[in-house]
Amino acid sequence: MISVDQIRPSQSVASEMSVVHEYAWPKPAQRLSSTFFKLVYRWSHSNAFRHNERLWHGVSIERDSRGFLKRMSIEGHDLLVENPDDLLASQTGDCHLIATGPSVNDIDYGALDLHNVMGVNGAIALQDKHPIRFEYYCIVDAGFVRKRPDLVARVVQQKLTLFVTPLVLWYIAQYFPLSQFRCRVYLIEDIQYPACKRALLKHELLSTHASTDLVLFDEEPTLGFSFNISRGIFDGRTVAYTGLQVLTSLGFNTIFMHGLDLLNAAQTPRFYETKETMQPSALDGDFNSFIEPSFRHAAPLLSRRGVRVVNLSAQSALGSDIIEKDDWHSLAHVSLEQE
């Protein structure tokens, strides 16, 4: 099992937070070389391979006998990739997924005793205010890496398990020395766009991945849910949906979703941003076609499989008819009762 020991001494968390989080913008020659090889790939490959344009030069990906991701190297540097079967379905009980909606600022994390915590994208910034230990982390948005390499540097230098796609890992390598990674890496991939392989057509998804671990909701657009991340994940156009698939695959029975606001995202800063520093968001445009129907289909499916999902965002665009809602204070009451 590769999950971090669930001990919570504040000194240990503070020690990780005090690490110098260094990163460097790619040099002009490096950017020019990357762009050149990307264009060469575009000219020589069809659109079905376009998602691999950053992965063909200097990148090696190895799969096991079942076709699951196993190893990855960049420019000859082997990454500390750990994709063991025994990690899946190895956990039970409660866990917490901390997204980056502004409602996170309404939660008094000092009143909570959280275990089994996953962060996504910029959730690591919560450590500026609270000594939250992240056992797991998930980043599937290459744009986030390009825009906030400072936050990504903080993630990779902590002792956690990072669930990440090969493409995102390639982008991280452009900013941060791979030899200085302190995190473990678990490779995941979009089920429709496998790394270094041709994209699957809609009708090929089920025939190629015939398994009870995968449920296809719709073919146009491609919506579904994966109970086995080794086989791939479905893109619900928000990293929180990917994180939900990861935590379910790990075996957790109850998943508390923090900061799952998804409301007026283009005009509303994330919990760690201001109006002046906020980055663009595509959530509003993707909500009706991808995000809402993904969660709406997944909720009853998870319930039937004994997984409870709780949304702690009172102002979330996902109504209680989709996901159960509760107030974060209920977690504080549980923490007090356990003392």
Rank of each mutant, 00 (worst) to 15 (best):
G58Q: 10
V59W: 05
S60T: 15
S60H: 15
S60N: 15
I61W: 04
E62L: 14
R63G: 05
R63V: 01
D64N: 15
G67N: 11
F68T: 01
K70R: 14
K70M: 09
R71H: 13
R71S: 08
M72L: 08
M72K: 02
M72S: 02
M72Q: 03
S73A: 04
E75T: 07
E75M: 10
G76F: 00
G76W: 02
H77N: 12
H77W: 12
H77C: 08
H77K: 14
H77L: 15
D78C: 00
L80D: 15
L80H: 13
L80F: 11
L80I: 08
V81M: 09
E82S: 13
P84E: 06
D86E: 11
A89V: 11
A89M: 14
Q91R: 14
T92F: 06
G93H: 07
G93E: 07
G93A: 02
C95K: 01
C95D: 04
H96N: 11
H96R: 07
I98V: 12
G101L: 00
G101F: 01
V104K: 04
N105D: 11
I107R: 05
I107Y: 02
D108W: 06
D108Y: 06
A111C: 13
A111R: 15
L112E: 02
L112V: 05
L112I: 04
H115R: 08
H115P: 05
N116Y: 09
M118V: 04
V120I: 11
G122K: 04
A123Y: 06
A123L: 10
I124Q: 03
A125T: 09
A125D: 07
A125P: 00
A125E: 09
L126Y: 08
L126K: 02
Q127L: 00
Q127R: 15
D128N: 10
D128G: 07
K129E: 13
K129L: 07
K129Q: 15
K129D: 06
I132K: 13
R133S: 08
F134P: 05
E135F: 06
Y137H: 08
C138L: 06
V140L: 06
V140E: 01
G143L: 11
F144V: 01
F144H: 10
F144W: 03
R146Q: 14
R146P: 05
K147N: 12
R148S: 08
P149W: 05
L151E: 05
V152T: 10
V152S: 06
A153W: 03
R154N: 05
V155S: 06
V155E: 00
